[in-house]
Simulated scan of single mutants.
Amino acid sequence: MNYTLNQLQIFVKVVQTSSITKAAEELNLTQPAVSIQIKNFQAQFEIPLLEIIGKKIYVTDFGKEIAASAEGILEQVYAINYKTMAFKDQLIGRLKVSIVSTGKYVLPYYLSDFLKANPGVEISIDVTNRGKVIESLEQNEVDFSLVSDQLESTQFDFIDILKNELVLVGNTETAAMNPSFDYNTFKHELPLIFRESGSGTRKIMESYLKKQGVSSLKRIELMSNEAVKQAVMAGLGYSIMPLIGIKREIKDGYLAIIPREGLPITTDWKLIWHKEKKPSPVAKAFMNFVLENNERIKQSFFN
């Protein structure tokens, strides 16, 4: 066997995400680079690790055993790194965060200086929808989560870090049509484009439309804000989207805001954690960093 730690890390991430594309995004690699490393890793085993059926990745029983062993190896490597940093009297450990998909436009600005000041800290970020984000906190799988709507449970503490505005958008051509979304005429208009069930943006969008008396809709449902954005730019329909993720497209003229009563909808980005979870030294340090630097970060990057 001649596999590398890099191959182990990539294989574990592919198993966790069941996707080459998602693994590449989370590892900040290109999709071809991930595919090549998986191919080279597989070449060292006579038994298949992964199976691709209908463009979907399935992990074989043998692959699951190899993934479990690989995780153990990587944990040992992390432990060695942590001990090395500890002798240098530096903060060490891993910070696990789950975020809603639009959170990728927010969290990096809160991590950048923190990681520069603490090179012994490693970050694990799971990007998913709101339902799974909350579930990861309840299952004690992460230290923090980042969401952008109201909390329904009292089992979490939080820090309000940033305002989040949601607006109705279309591309420049469809926005000029000024859709009514009236029940009697909506069947003749372009559809509304929604996120999947469990999405915080979807929840906010449905609540707004209900208040406007729009209950019977033609709709398209997509699994990410990026997919929704591309569909709206292509002229497939309209959507209510977080402004933070579409500023450049509005500035460049690919998208246009459609004024409506009750819009924009303003919520708060919240860094949340379970009240009963005892924070690790790394988690406590990050919490303090956010509290001390939130205003500076807002003024520097989100003013």
Results as ranks from 00 to 15, higher is better:
Pro119Asp: 09
Gln90Trp: 05
Lys96Gln: 13
Phe87Lys: 05
Ile80Met: 09
Ser145His: 02
Ser101Gly: 02
Val97Tyr: 08
Arg94Glu: 13
Arg94Lys: 14
Gly120Pro: 03
Glu75His: 03
Tyr110Val: 00
Asp89Gln: 10
Asp149Ala: 10
Lys132Ser: 13
Ser101Leu: 01
Arg130Ser: 05
Ile134Trp: 11
Tyr105Asn: 04
Leu95Ala: 12
Leu74Ser: 04
Arg130Ala: 10
Glu135Ala: 15
Lys104Met: 12
Gly72Asp: 10
Glu141Gly: 12
Val147Lys: 01
Gly131Gln: 07
Ser136Asn: 11
Val77Trp: 03
Gln139His: 09
Lys88Met: 12
Ser145Tyr: 01
Leu137Phe: 04
Val121Ser: 05
Lys104Ala: 06
Asn81Met: 09
Ile73Ala: 09
Ile134Met: 15
Thr128Ala: 06
Val77Arg: 01
Asn81Glu: 15
Leu95Gly: 14
Lys116Cys: 00
Asn129Ser: 04
Lys104Cys: 10
Gly103Leu: 05
Glu75Gly: 01
Asn129Ile: 08
Glu135Asp: 15
Gln76Val: 08
Ile134Phe: 15
Val100Arg: 02
Ile125Val: 15
Ile73Ser: 08
Ala117Arg: 01
Tyr109Trp: 01
Ile92Pro: 00
Val77Ile: 09
Tyr110Gln: 00
Asn118Glu: 02
Leu74Ala: 06
Val121Ala: 04
Ala86Thr: 11
Val133Tyr: 02
Asn140Thr: 03
Lys104Gly: 11
Gly120Glu: 07
Leu95Lys: 04
Phe87Gln: 07
Met85Phe: 10
Ile80Lys: 09
Gly93Ile: 02
Glu141Tyr: 11
Asp149Ser: 15
Ile125Ala: 13
Pro119Met: 05
Ser148Gly: 14
Ser145Lys: 02
Val127Pro: 00
Leu95Tyr: 08
Leu111Asp: 09
Asp149Ile: 09
Glu122Asn: 09
Thr84Lys: 13
Asp113Ala: 13
Thr84Trp: 07
Phe87Asn: 05
Pro119His: 04
Leu115Pro: 08
Ile134Leu: 15
Ser124Ile: 12
Asn129Ala: 00
Tyr109Gln: 01
Ala117Met: 11
Lys116Ala: 02
Ser124Tyr: 13
Glu122Gln: 11
Ile99Phe: 10
Thr84Met: 14
Leu91Gln: 09
Gln76Phe: 06
Ala86His: 06
Asp113Cys: 07
Phe144Trp: 02
Ile123Phe: 07
Ile73Tyr: 06
Gly72Arg: 08
Thr84Phe: 14
Ser148Phe: 06
Ala86Arg: 13
Glu135His: 14
Leu115Arg: 10
Met85Tyr: 13
Ala86Glu: 15
Tyr109Leu: 00
Met85Arg: 03
Gly93Tyr: 01
Glu138His: 04
Leu111Tyr: 03
Asn81Cys: 08
Leu146His: 00
Ile80Arg: 10
Leu111Asn: 06
Ile92Lys: 11
Tyr109Met: 03
Tyr82Lys: 13
Val127Leu: 00
Ser98Gln: 07
Val127Gly: 00
Glu75Thr: 11
Ser101Val: 01
Asp149Met: 08
Val127Ser: 00
Met85Asn: 11
Ile92Ala: 12
Asn118Val: 01
Glu138Asn: 10
Gly93Glu: 08
Lys116Glu: 08
Ala117Gln: 13
Phe144Leu: 05
Arg130Trp: 01
Arg94Thr: 14
Leu111Val: 05
Asn81Leu: 10
Gln90Cys: 09
Gln90Ile: 14
Val133Glu: 07
Lys83Phe: 12
Asp149Asn: 15
Glu135Cys: 07
